[in-house]
Structures are given as structure tokens and as C-alpha cells.
């Protein structure tokens, strides 16, 4: 493999890892606060649709982004109501949200645009455009580092940079602020937080809200940056891959970055090569497709380090009477 190919694959890895990273961090906030969320997929899909639709109608991608966040937040509220207020089963609620998004996006898209469940193609200001970082063109001539700076680091949309900045931001918020301490405590020992006079329900709603915003950005990235418009089922299981990455990362922000980059790399390789020839033995493309899921199962099984979820995860909090 030559340098240019490697660079292209790395570039594509970054693009494909971005929605995974955003969704993974979204899940991290929610699950660290004790709310399991298998509805990441649905929230991303709903956000992808509404951001694509709003951007297509208004011609302004930023309003589209807000629309995407609103769609994702609406589903977050449903998840919060079901799993926090009404103490329902968080997993069942997540399943319902995924189907709700999968059905509603097509029904509404067909009603609004009549293009077989897609939004019109986005052009011009209705899409996020790549940003050229300073001196990218001037430094392109520098051997090795120049092309890396120009192709890999520069030339992405703003959402990519936001996603990567979210990693240190999340780390700082979770481990260096009072809110972060409380959020983590709510996921481990909600009764202790309650004893300290802090609202468990309030913190959990906030965590689910942050999750909604990040899923919204992830979905909007899919429809307005990675591709030009919404198509049916366009998230294609990315929410589940993000969930897998979250477990792979053992619910920690920096590890989430490495996990999503790994899964993004797998997608980039599967996209570029149909079958991979490893000296006489051919790896079929389907193995690359299945690899994130197989890796997650192996991690979950504890064969590659043990993944221990937040202790109070999945259980609704009931004040003792």
C-alpha cells in the first residue's frame, strides 16, 4: 500500500468515525448516568431526516442542524419519560424509539417531498462544506507532513472538528466538574446522590438531554455533511456500532475516540476493498462488515479485558419510603 492510499483511507476513517464518535459520546453521557440507551440509532435517524428536510427547505444548513437536534431531543424526551418518570424498561423504550424513527422518517418524508422517502439533494449553503485550515495549501509541498496536514487534518466539515473536540470536553466535564461527578455518581449509586440532596431525576434528565443533542449532531452530520440529503435507513446500524464502541471503550471518553476510530477504519477499509487478500487467504467483505459486532461480543465476553457497565445502569430509581 502506497502513501497516497494510506492517506485516503485515513481521511475516510476520520469521516466515517465522526458520526460514530458523536453517537458514542451521546451514549456515554446517558449510560454513565444509569440510563441504558439502545435508541441511539433511532435518534440519529430522526435527526438525519429532520436536518436534511429543514436544510432542504430553508437552504440553511445551520437551521437544519437545529432541526436535527430538535428531532433527536424529542425522542430523548420520550426515552426520559419512559425510563425516568414512569420507571419503564429502558431497553424496550430504546427498541420502540428505533422503530418509531425508522417508520416516521419515511412516512413524513414521503408526505413532505414525495420522493420515495428521501429528502431533496442538498446543494450550496444547505450542506456543511469542508474547511481549509490555515496554510494547508502553502504547506502541501512539504514531504510527508504537508500532505498529511492538507488531506487528513484540514479539509473536513466543522462538525468533524466539533466531534473531536467533544472528547477532551467530555473528559473535562465528567472528571473535572461537580456536574460530572454527580452524573457519574447517579449511574453508580443514585441513593448516595439522593442522600446528598441532589435530584437524581434532574441529573438523569440532563444526561439524556445531552445525549439527545449529540445524537442530533451525529444525525445531522450524516445527512448534511457526509452525504447530501436524507435517504431511508441511512444510519444503517451506526447507532448499534456506536453502542458497541461504547462497550469497547468501557464507557470512557478517550477510549471512545480510539474505539470509534477503529470501527471507522474497518468501515473505510470495507468501503474501499471488496475482498482483502492476505497472502493467499482472502478475507471476504462480509467479515469486515461483521467485525465491529464480533469484536464487541468478544469484549463483552471478557476475553479481551472485562467491560463493567455503570452499576446502577438500567434500573429506575425509586426513592425509599
Amino acid at each position: 500500500m502506497d502513501f497516497v492510499t494510506a492517506l485516503q483511507i485515513a481521511d475516510s476513517t476520520v469521516r466515517l468515525a465522526t458520526p460514530l464518535l458523536l453517537a458514542c459520546l451521546a451514549g456515554l453521557y446517558s449510560e454513565r448516568a444509569g440510563i441504558f440507551d439502545i435508541g441511539l440509532e433511532g435518534k440519529m435517524l430522526a435527526a438525519a431526516f429532520l436536518s436534511g428536510a429543514v436544510a432542504a427547505v430553508t437552504g440553511n444548513v445551520w437551521i437544519g442542524l437545529l432541526g436535527g437536534i430538535a428531532a433527536s431531543m424529542a425522542l430523548s424526551v420520550v426515552h426520559g419519560l419512559a425510563s425516568i418518570t414512569f420507571r419503564g424498561n429502558q431497553l424496550i423504550s430504546g427498541v420502540a424509539i428505533n422503530f418509531l424513527a425508522s417508520g416516521l422518517t419515511v412516512v413524513i418524508a414521503q408526505d413532505w417531498f414525495e420522493q420515495g422517502g428521501r429528502t431533496p439533494s442538498l446543494i450550496g449553503g444547505a450542506r456543511f462544506t469542508p474547511i481549509t485550515l490555515p496554510f494547508a495549501d502553502a504547506l502541501a509541498g512539504v514531504p510527508v507532513l504537508g500532505p498529511i496536514y492538507k488531506e487528513l487534518i484540514s479539509g473536513h466539515t466543522i462538525l468533524v472538528y466539533i466531534a473531536f473536540l467533544m472528547v477532551p470536553a467530555t473528559w473535562w466535564l465528567l472528571y473535572r466538574t461537580r456536574f460530572g461527578l454527580r452524573l457519574r455518581a447517579v449511574g453508580e449509586a443514585p441513593e448516595a446522590v439522593d442522600t446528598a440532596g441532589i435530584s437524581v431525576i434532574g441529573i438523569r434528565y440532563m444526561a439524556v438531554g445531552i445525549c439527545g443533542v449529540l445524537c442530533g449532531v451525529a444525525g445531522a452530520y450524516m445527512a448534511t455533511a457526509l452525504q447530501a440529503g436524507f435517504v431511508q435507513e441511512m444510519t444503517a446500524g451506526r447507532g448499534y456500532v456506536a453502542l458497541a464502541a461504547l462497550i469497547f471503550a468501557k464507557w470512557r471518553p478517550w477510549h471512545a475516540l480510539w474505539a470509534t476510530l477503529l470501527f471507522g477504519f474497518l468501515q473505510a477499509v470495507a468501503l474501499r476493498y471488496q475482498n482483502i487478500d492476505l497472502g493467499g487467504f482472502t478475507v471476504p467483505v462480509q467479515v469486515m462488515d461483521a467485525l465491529p459486532y464480533i469484536l464487541t461480543v468478544l469484549i463483552l465476553a471478557g476475553f479481551v479485558g472485562k467491560a463493567i457497565p455503570p452499576r446502577a445502569g438500567g434500573a429506575p430509581y425509586v426513592k425509599e419510603r
Binding site: V78, L81, A82, S83, F86, G88, N89, Q90, I92, S93, V95, A96, I97, N98, F99, L100, S102, G103, L104, V106, V107, Q110, G117
Partner: peptide, 18 residues
């Protein structure tokens, strides 16, 4: 796809929002 919406609402109300 409206069936998927109905299916989701049935799961939501009989399951999660019981």
C-alpha cells in the same frame, strides 16, 4: 412504513410506558 410506526407505538405503550 406506517405499520412500523404502529408497531413502535404498541411497543412503547404496552412495554415501556406501561
Amino acid at each position: 412504513e406506517l405499520i412500523v410506526v404502529i408497531q413502535a407505538l404498541v411497543i412503547l405503550f404496552t412495554g415501556a410506558l406501561d
